[in-house]
Amino acid sequence: MKLGFLVDLDLCMGCKGCEIACKSENNVPPSIWRLRVKYVDSGIFPDTKRAFTPMRCNHCDNAPCERICPVSALHYLDNGIVNIDKERCIGCAGCMMACPYGAIYMDPETNTADKCTYCAHRIEGGLEPACVVACPVGANLFGDISDNRSKISRYIMAHRDTRVRKPEKGTLPKHFYVGGGDIHLNPLATTRNSGHGLFNNISHLKHVGGH
């Protein structure tokens, strides 16, 4: 079994229900997100467009975070999930330097690395990840990508515009996007103004975790 994720960006409407469900399910501390939806505005009035991109850990098949972790705190589960053992983590931040997707953060409460685990605890109990359940339009698909008959596999096969983030990094991500363009998936294709956001004015997070 190889669990994977897919987001249909043509369906996502940026409601952030998945973000909140994830935060609530996993007790993610304030100012930190395991999963977040990025808004990107493009164009010139009146031809403007807003793109929504949910972003989480890619649970790579060839995960650089797992390889660099000096104490195996980051490890593969049999179902393909890249899990983290917070009791073992020493907080060296090597994984944060290795992950090309910026998916790992330092938890300010435990001073250890943390990230999306595809809700491994829920999956163990036969449930779907919290973000999948919360999505009102079914934009999030989750399932076994090694099984050709699974819904996610059939969705990938049916959509020729299925993409992953930064394939050139050779990480073999198991998180797919349908309908995305460069402004959705390439962080360098957009301008990131500091000083303001749509709903808040936090543009730079003071380094958390003790120093």
């Binding site: 997100w33 808004y39 010139i44 807003r50 793109a51 301008t191």
Partner: peptide, 20 residues
């Protein structure tokens, strides 16, 4: 070139320098 005018209008804060 207008392509770069795509602006991130809402996102989490940038984590900045971790290894200082």
């Amino acid at each position: 070139p207008i392509f770069k005018s795509a602006i991130v209008s809402l996102d989490v804060a940038f984590t900045g320098v971790i290894w200082g």
